[in-house]
């Protein structure tokens, strides 16, 4: 517990960390309290007030159906996180477990799991998402699963690499010679040592998941209406941009704001968790994969 507190304190001590932390905290607060702080029902249509410019009643104006832009962005925050968190966490859990097994057990299981992961990796996330969502249909659950599917191979390859490099460490060999079983070695000894670098990737992947989801929705394959998805708001705003640019402002700022926040937080966390990686760019996972080989 004290280690966690220490990590948090060290993160907040850095400017990027404190800014990231503040943005993420604010985002979470907005998401949790969305129904309380949104001035209007995000789906309430008012045809008489279409494309209104910002005013005291509608701080960010209204969209093509007279819906309040601000309320839609606020509710969209909740939706974005509702999809991004479970998607990344389930990708992380599945990738970690399968990667650990593949790396430690090796052999046929390793080869099969690696081929599966490589197959998914060969598709760009959005293309894979488009194909799968066309097959299974649009819903919050399906979008979450599709994003998780597109992210889990990274975790699998990363976890496998870490397991491979750790299994030959003297302390693991010692444990094995003491007669410890596979399960005990994997979950008690390998796992705790693999978590920090993986958690860094989790923090960095939240914005990726948000952007993938918004991208799918922008292309018309996200969460079905009337959900105020940021990607949908961008799409609708883009179609009518010549009439009014205000519907675009909210979702655009929200995506920039939230992805910046999570990225700053993730990068600070990475610097603290593994100083060797400090200053490296995004996609730490890929770097680690290469390192693991």
């Amino acid at each position: 517990m004290s280690e966690l507190r220490q990590t948090v304190i060290r993160m907040l001590a850095r400017p990027a960390g404190s800014i990231g932390f503040a943005i993420v905290a604010l985002t979470l607060l907005v998401a949790v309290t969305a129904p309380l702080i949104a001035p209007y029902d995000p789906a309430a249509i008012a045809m008489a007030k279409r494309f209104a410019a910002p005013s005291f009643d509608h701080w960010l104006g209204t969209d093509h159906l007279g819906r309040d832009n601000l309320s839609r962005v606020i509710h969209g925050t909740r939706l974005a996180l509702t999809i991004a968190f479970p998607a990344v966490l389930s990708a992380f859990a599945a990738g970690l477990l399968l990667g650990l097994v593949a790396g430690y057990v090796g052999g046929l299981i390793d080869r099969v799991l690696t081929v599966i992961a490589d197959t998914f990796l060969s598709f760009p996330s959005v293309i894979l998402g488009l194909a799968l969502l066309t097959l299974v249909g649009q819903s919050v659950l399906n979008t979450t699963l599709v994003i998780a599917l597109s992210l889990f191979p990274y975790y699998l390859r990363l976890a496998r690499g870490l397991a491979l490099s750790t299994r030959h460490q003297p302390y693991i060999k010692a444990e094995r010679s003491l007669g410890a079983g596979r399960g005990r070695i994997m979950f008690l000894h390998l796992l705790p040592n693999m978590l920090p670098p993986l958690l860094v990737v989790v923090a960095m992947d939240i914005p990726s998941a948000i952007v993938i989801e918004a991208g799918l929705a922008f292309l018309g394959l996200g969460v079905p209406p009337p959900a105020p998805d940021w990607g949908v708001l961008l799409n609708e705003g883009f179609v009518n941009v010549a009439i009014s640019a205000w519907p675009l402002v909210g979702p655009l700022m929200a995506i920039i704001f939230v992805t910046t926040g999570f990225t700053l937080l993730g990068e600070t966390f990475r610097d603290i968790a593994d100083p060797r990686l400090a200053g490296l760019g995004r996609r730490t996972g890929r770097f680690l994969m290469r390192r693991a080989r």
Binding site: A43, A44, I45, M47, H64, L65, G220, P225, P226, E236, V239
Partner: peptide
């Protein structure tokens, strides 16, 4: 039509 999604949202509401 390009406005189909919009119309369907009004029907939905």
């Amino acid at each position: 039509q390009a406005t189909a999604a919009t119309v369907m949202q009004v029907i939905q509401a």
